[in-house]
Amino acid sequence: MPVSLTVNGTSHSVDLPDDVPLLWVLRDALGLTGTKYGCGVAACGACTVQIDGEAVRSCQIALADVQGDVTTIEGLGTPDALAVIQQAWSDHQVAQCGYCQSGQIMQAAALLAQTPDPSDEEIDIAMQGNLCRCGTYPRIRAAIHSAAQMMPAPMKKEG
């Protein structure tokens, strides 16, 4: 029986078994390939998306268990209209191979929504599940700090 879900503000009807992970619904059924497959066991964070603003590993959530609106990297911003965090990533020239960066950005965006001006330790805790084999971590950290400064004031908890 088709399952309906909302991704980036658009509702979709998907005819796949209930246990197919959200990752593979996004990539293979909906063609949203910005969300990446890395490990399938929640060990690398490449598949990170947001559900109702919370960062989750889409390889671990079965289609039938998706409760809430899904946001993927494609829904965060576009090449013509970058989200603030994507602008910070571009300013710091973070990506090398870039394969993990969709997940890194979705995780960092969730962090900033919760913690508008995170410390290095808060960044460490939030981001340590996201693996980058190219070793872009120093620039990821710098980009998160920059994005925190670039965010419009009303988005921050305390002015």
């Binding site: 949203l32 390939t33 910005g34 969300t35 990446k36 497959y37 993927t72 990297i73 494609e74 965060l76 911003g77 576009t78 090449p79 970058l82 994507q86 990533w89 571009s90 020239q93 973070v94 990506a95 870039g98 394969y99 960066q101 969709s102 950005i105």
Partner: peptide, 14 residues
């Protein structure tokens, strides 16, 4: 390749 890689629009083989 930066814009494509920060927006999920860069196309890898996969």
């Amino acid at each position: 390749d930066m814009l494509g890689k920060v927006t999920g629009t860069a196309k890898y083989g996969i």
